[in-house]
């Protein structure tokens, strides 16, 4: 139970904390206040609690595949909002425009809150299940704390590492990671729709489980980080690649403008 709770919690927390730290780094680059994170965390937690409590009912929707449909919708919505975030950031038309800044922050809040809703609901279900067993209370609590600590620590270090990079490098690394996260969201959504039989199942492209098992802690952390999967199907892979390329395309398009903005910020 101990390792299991660490793996489960750290994976879920890491997914959210990496997303948060990238968005925080972007917001910082645009010299925006970081208070939005708090709003996103509170909103996300509230909705995660509500969703977690009603997981049983949701599961029965759409002929017992409601959970997949709701989760896939959340993932796809996040992907669309990430497209918007990339567009807003890279076109930086709003660096001096109040309205644009509010749209960027509202978008960031929505992305983080949605990510937390899905992950928080899973954590909530896990904890209510595990904590009713007196034998496991201490173990699961310890494991959850360690998992949370690992997830948040990586996020914090990642945020400062992004800040330590210089302008262009930071932009490229941030963008690439953003594209991988968005890609993993799409492939997860496709997997969920497969599972619900709403999408045709396509053959598995490769099996890298002997190189890095999804079962191992590293595998699970990598899954949380960039959606690593040992046996991806063709459709998942296509969705992943397509989404990542769209993000890169939107983000790379206006590179010169970013440079200008950075210069004015650094000046």
């Amino acid at each position: 139970m101990f390792l299991n709770s660490i793996a489960l919690i750290s994976q879920e927390v890491l997914e959210a904390s990496i997303l948060i730290s990238i968005l925080m780094a972007l917001a910082k680059q645009l010299q925006l206040s970081q208070r939005w994170v708090l709003i996103a965390l509170v909103m996300g937690s509230i909705f995660a609690f509500i969703y977690g409590q009603n997981m049983g009912d949701v599961s029965e929707w759409f002929d017992y595949v409601g959970q997949e449909i709701v989760n896939a919708s959340i993932q796809l919505l996040i992907v669309i909002l990430m497209f918007l975030a990339t567009f807003l950031y890279s076109h930086s038309i709003f660096s001096s425009n109040k309205q644009g800044q509010i749209i960027f922050l509202a978008n960031a809040i929505a992305i983080v809150a949605l990510a937390i809703v899905r992950e928080g609901a899973e954590i909530y279900n896990y904890l209510i299940g595990a904590l009713v067993q007196p034998d496991y209370v201490l173990t699961v609590t310890a494991g959850s704390l360690i998992g949370t600590g690992i997830g948040i620590s990586i996020g914090v270090l990642f945020y400062y590492a992004m800040g330590a990079l210089t302008g262009k490098k930071r932009h490229i690394i941030g963008l690439v990671l953003f594209s991988l996260i968005a890609g993993s969201m799409t492939s997860q959504a496709i997997l969920l729709l497969n599972q619900a039989d709403w999408l045709i199942s396509t053959p598995v492209l490769w099996d890298s489980s002997h190189l890095l098992s999804e079962h191992s802690l590293t595998g699970r952390l990598l899954y949380g980080l960039i959606g690593y999967e040992a046996t991806p199907s063709a459709l998942e892979f296509a969705g992943y690649l397509g989404t990542a390329l769209i993000i890169l395309f939107i983000g790379m398009k206006k590179m010169p403008k970013i440079k200008c903005l950075e210069q004015t910020i650094n000046a």
Binding site: I150, S153, I154, V156, L157
Partner: peptide, 14 residues
């Protein structure tokens, strides 16, 4: 504070 604590937590927990 944050980065030192993060490194410490990460490696201690691992």
């Amino acid at each position: 504070i944050l980065s030192v604590v993060a490194v410490l937590v990460l490696f201690n927990f691992i």
